[in-house]
């Protein structure tokens, strides 16, 4: 049995430090979700309007954010703004800004797709039943939209959590960075620590994301 370097995890405060790193990643995701989801819903609803100016502006925003690798955005906001505008953003703030921009774009596209997917007959039927516009949205469109959106947006949350693994590049000490620090610190005492520590990171990401995707699956089945 080769030395898998698992013992390193139990030395000193290594495990609590990893958990702290996980929390840093989850915290940034959570803040970004809380800000970007309402914004995304609002923008998504705006995108269904027929106004060509709003449509074009949204389209450009959406394509830009989605085509751009998140890493480039992170560098742009963390390093770029410091020199250009003299902003002194912390790594965490820059991360939240990028994740909010990204999350809002993705969410608005989900909302837009969901709203336009309602067949015309649902609108006509409720009109024919004498429902007003407000009643149409309250009783017909929104309840169905929420059901369809929940699994999709839960999916987006897990994608956000996974993407936080990039923010160590702008100096945020999250789980992956902590893992690297632990491996470095134990390079001579436990040269095989990389395996054990990254394995722990693997399981910690899994523990964070798995319940969320289970929840998505459950809701999908329940409301599908």
């Amino acid at each position: 049995m080769p030395d898998l370097g698992i013992s390193v995890l139990f030395k000193g405060k290594n495990l609590p430090r990893l958990l702290g790193g996980l929390w840093a990643a989850l915290r940034i995701s959570l803040i970004s979700v809380v800000i970007s989801f309402p914004l995304g819903i609002l923008l998504g609803a705006l995108m269904t309007l027929k106004n060509p100016f709003v449509k074009a502006a949204m389209r450009i925003y959406l394509e830009f954010i989605r085509i751009m690798p998140q890493m480039v955005l992170l560098f742009l906001f963390y390093f770029g703004t410091t020199r250009a505008f003299g902003w002194d953003l912390t790594g965490e703030t820059a991360s939240v800004i990028v994740f909010v921009l990204w999350g809002t774009a993705e969410m608005s596209d989900l909302v837009r797709g969901c709203l336009i997917s309602f067949p015309a007959h649902q609108y006509e039927t409720s009109e024919a039943l004498g429902l007003g516009k407000a009643q149409l949205y309250r009783y017909i469109i929104i309840p169905q939209a929420v059901r369809r959106l929940i699994p999709l947006s839960v999916n987006l949350v897990t994608r956000m959590i996974k993407t936080t693994s990039l923010i160590l590049m702008i100096g945020v000490v999250e789980i992956l960075k902590v893992a690297q620090q632990i491996i470095e610190a134990n390079r001579t005492a436990s040269p095989n620590a990389a395996f054990g520590v990254y394995l722990a990171v693997f399981f910690l990401y899994f523990i964070a994301c798995w319940p969320i995707s289970m929840l998505a699956q459950y809701l999908e089945r329940k409301w599908g």
Partner: peptide, 23 residues
């Protein structure tokens, strides 16, 4: 209508009572 356009998220009773009760 032609395509029996019931609201898929409501039960039979929910579909029937929506307009009489809410409208």
């Amino acid at each position: 209508f032609q395509n029996y356009e019931l609201f898929p998220h409501l039960t039979v009773l929910g579909n029937i009572q929506l307009a009489p009760v809410k409208v």
